[in-house]
Design a protein around this nucleic acid. Structure first.
Lengths: 332, 332
DNA sequence: GGAATCTTTGCAAGCGATTGCAGAACTCAC
DNA sequence: GTGAGTTCTGCAATCGCTTGCAAAGATTCC
């Protein structure tokens, strides 16, 4: 591989010193117009691109950010990742991606690996211990998604409102016994959602919401949960997220249990696969694109304390009714 | 933010020089066992993590790689991304992610931005012009996925075999008129697949395969294509990929056209959402996880020319029959 | 015991950029 | 023509780390 060209090459070509090249290209300091043109032209001809590592060494800023997610194949995180990447590009940052594969150890490892080569980190649905988060936060700028921690900036969707919308919908349909299919115990969102249920369920007349196990937050988890849901006698299932909902749907179909006639099923998030299935999955939509964008904005604000801060976006959730929920029928 | 600790801090703490710290921690040069222990202990206590940018500056290697994909929300690329990330981590590399959003300009822009801060690049389904690829390849180590270019390493699944398996399956069921629903014109895979069809279709008795338009390689693209497929009079549709297949499925369901009774539908790739729908989508599976892993392995080999090269993996494709294909029925 | 060899360590240079400082060149006014 | 004030540019230091070289100390061998 050809050894890449440096400021010195450009300097030589333009007949100036390296410092002049630096100044001419950065534009921070005054350089004679004629000189600048000569430098710019030389740089263009040689195809010069500054070595960002070297620059970072001296300026102390890499213009890189890191994003840690539990599972890239989960469309929920794929959407967030996509919007983070897109917004970061617009803001002049490159992004390191790290998939912890739902594993706490891996997550921590990745965070450490990344923390030294980025200006800031976005942790999405982190499972790691609060103490570890705090430790890393002391060294690196950090924004949390779907988790809060004192003193740290975070972007969270309103879990309580999600739950309220979901319960309201099911209750309005006439359901009085609902099973909540829980996600990972360590998941902050899962905890928040269950807490919201315990708080909000009593506000509805005659509504009983039971919790069913803890399952992996994906299709397989839903499949595992389905039979337990059926056995619980509930007339509706509210899944931790859409993938779990889809897993339940699939398993029920296999068993010949009709949705929504025999059992209503709801997801949460409205990831883009929720529309693909039939019956379409009723769900509560989280504004994933906004979440990612907002996280980057917050992080950029954090990293450039001098700039004017962008106003925090609000993150509205919304009930999306499809075919997987209906009025409960009497069991035979 | 606390200024991070350097070799010098560790050196002072351990009562040695910076160079000794470097040697003790890297293990490349002999260091007295007792000294090493002291250094390691000091480093551990201080939580020292080397500044990789600084190291990269001198060793000329960043231990970062870049991955460019057209669409992270597409489960096909999500799977590849996940396996690339995972394998890269195991090999000691961090990965930059770049989503070009199917746009050639963005893709080129991202490649340039990344090329200066990585040891190597993986380009997944690049749409960019061959000349641009060549230009970048001159500066940065590079591995291509789903595209070939003279002199460059690439990882490709056997499109001809995919097509052969698909046509064989549909022909065996009795289909004689098949519609191929094309993906993006600039997509190398799409070109290869259609070329394979033109070559292989004639080897089957009495088989006619027509091409239907060019559609976005996603769910929406499939929905757009469905009506045209129906109008073409084909008894089976072979989609450019699973998402297009799912889009077709959804649109047909909406129109009340039964699958597979009225029309058989096949996808390609077997992305992990293909199982979620009913009827399940018949498809030809590409070994996505292996593709990602293999790309990283090749890139690592390229970047470390001295090491023993890993044997190239073979990437077997496989027909997966689900419920979306069957014997064609006579039209009323 | 002394020369030769080996091991261990520190000094200093340098990776590719940025930037404070100071000198050179130029302008302008008196 | 001289001094003051501007502009522009180069020197040299620096960021955090690695590494060639050489010196110092330890060990071996005759």
């Amino acid at each position: 591989m050809a050894t890449s060209i440096t400021v010195h090459d450009v300097a030589k070509a333009a007949g100036v010193s390296a410092s002049t090249v630096s100044r001419a290209l950065s534009g921070n300091t005054a350089v004679a117009a004629e000189t600048r043109d000569r430098v710019v032209e030389a740089a263009r001809q040689l195809g010069y691109r500054p070595n960002l590592a070297a620059r970072g060494l001296i300026t102390g800023t890499t213009h890189n950010i890191g994003l840690v997610v539990p599972d890239l194949e989960n469309p929920y995180f794929a959407s967030i990742t996509k919007s983070v990447q897109s917004r970061a590009l617009a803001a002049g940052y490159s992004v390191f991606i790290a998939d912890s594969d739902e594993d706490i150890r891996t997550e921590l490892e990745l965070v450490h690996q990344l923390s030294k080569q980025v200006d800031g980190l976005i942790l999405c649905s982190p499972r790691m211990a609060a103490s570890d988060i705090a430790a890393v936060a002391g060294q690196t700028m950090m924004v949390l998604i779907n988790r809060e921690w004192e003193g740290l900036t975070s972007v969270v969707v309103d879990d309580a409102e999600i739950i309220r919308l979901a319960l309201e919908h099911l209750h309005a349909l006439g359901h009085r016994h609902i099973a909540y299919v829980g996600g990972p115990e360590k998941s902050w969102s899962n905890q928040k959602r269950w807490a919201a249920i315990e708080r909000i369920a009593p506000t509805f007349d005659d509504l009983e919401v039971g919790k069913v196990g803890s399952y992996a937050p994906n299709f397989d988890g839903g499949q595992s949960a389905a039979d337990v849901v059926v056995a619980s006698g509930a007339t509706a299932a509210l899944a931790y997220n859409d993938l779990v909902g889809l897993g339940i749907l699939a398993r029920l179909t296999t068993r010949g249990i009709r949705v929504p006639e025999d059992l209503s099923v709801m997801g949460i998030d409205d990831v883009n696969v929720a529309t693909l299935v039939s019956p379409g999955l009723t769900t509560v939509r989280s504004p994933l694109k906004k979440v990612g964008r907002s996280a980057v904005n917050s992080l950029v604000d954090l990293m450039n304390p001098t700039d004017r801060h962008s106003a925090p976006e609000d993150l509205p959730v919304q009930l999306v009714v499809r075919q997987s929920t209906s009025v409960p029928q009497q069991h035979s």
